[in-house]
């Protein structure tokens, strides 16, 4: 059996890279924080006006904001929203882009041509402006925010999957299974998907971070969650006019965004190293 050995090797490679370790630790921490939010932090909406804009203290780890709300609680609860945004957006983009890519790659011809030109169009769109237009049209809300960000992320997956399909089409084993009479879709499911999984996973990991960053940017300019929802981008935005009096209130969520995006980027790097050794050098 060679599998465990490879796995160990992969794991060793993964653990040898300090970046990946930091990335995984941060990601695990983030997930834990999100899961345990109600346990480790208080009510993110609870106001206490007389205690507004207080600096960090034993009582308020990260101080309070302009309504006397606990910044720590808002950041911790915000992690749930950001994580949800990142995962949902990437999920939608993956499924949508994957389907388009699969269709384009397998059917080829005109379908392929049309699908690829559509992705061209989406690439040419300035992402934030497209997302702004969509969020503006649908009205600001968390769901519309996710739709908007997904709309700018899916074409990458379409390209990726299509490329995988094409490269695998050229390989022998697909031909072999065709000879055995397997249908086109079954081939796709059997062979293409598992092989495409590696680059997909890597891309998805980067994208969770990217989606969180884009969503926070939209939230910052007011196209996101409704107040008083503690979405990180929105929190940075609503506390920024107090940055001189209370730098903690806007810095804490900004640093949270930074760490989260960093975690997923490091994780993506690490996954690529482990799963796709050919691409190791690029990083």
């Amino acid at each position: 059996m060679t599998a465990p050995r490879i796995k160990n090797k992969a794991l060793r490679r993964f653990l040898r890279n300090p970046g990946t370790v930091v990335g995984s630790v941060l990601t695990i921490l983030l997930v834990l924080v999100a899961l345990l939010a109600p346990v480790i932090a208080g009510d993110p909406l609870l106001q206490n006006l007389p205690e507004r804009l207080r600096p960090p203290s034993g009582q308020h780890l990260l101080g309070t904001d302009q309504l006397g709300r606990d910044v720590w609680a808002r950041v911790v609860h915000g992690s749930r929203i950001s994580l949800r945004i990142g995962l949902t957006v990437t999920g939608i983009a993956l499924v949508l882009g994957g389907l388009v890519g699969l269709l384009a790659g397998i059917l080829g011809g005109l379908v392929d041509e049309i699908a690829m030109r559509i992705t061209d169009i989406f690439f040419a769109f300035p992402a934030l402006i497209l997302a702004m237009a969509i969020a503006g049209a649908l009205g600001p809300s968390l769901v519309n925010l996710m739709i908007a960000v997904a709309a700018v992320s899916w074409p990458y997956y379409a390209r990726l999957i299509r490329a995988q399909v094409l490269s695998l089409k050229a390989l022998d084993f697909v031909d072999a299974s065709r000879a055995l009479g397997a249908g086109r879709w079954r081939q796709a499911m059997r062979h293409v998907l598992p092989n495409a999984l590696t680059p997909l996973l890597v891309q998805a990991s980067f994208d969770v971070g990217g989606a969180i960053l884009t969503a926070a940017g939209l939230g910052f300019i007011g196209f996101g969650a409704q107040p008083p929802t503690p979405e990180w981008g929105a929190v940075v935005s609503e506390t920024r006019s107090f940055i001189i009096e209370a730098p903690w209130a806007s810095s804490a969520p900004a640093i949270a965004i930074l760490l989260t995006v960093l975690a997923f980027n490091l994780l993506g790097d690490g996954l690529r190293d482990v799963l796709d050794p050919r691409g190791r050098r690029r990083g």
Binding site: L45, Q47, L49, Q66, P227, P228
Partner: peptide
Amino acid sequence: VPCADLAAKIQS
């Protein structure tokens, strides 16, 4: 006053 803050106070 930012409208969002005022609204959050009234909401509470």
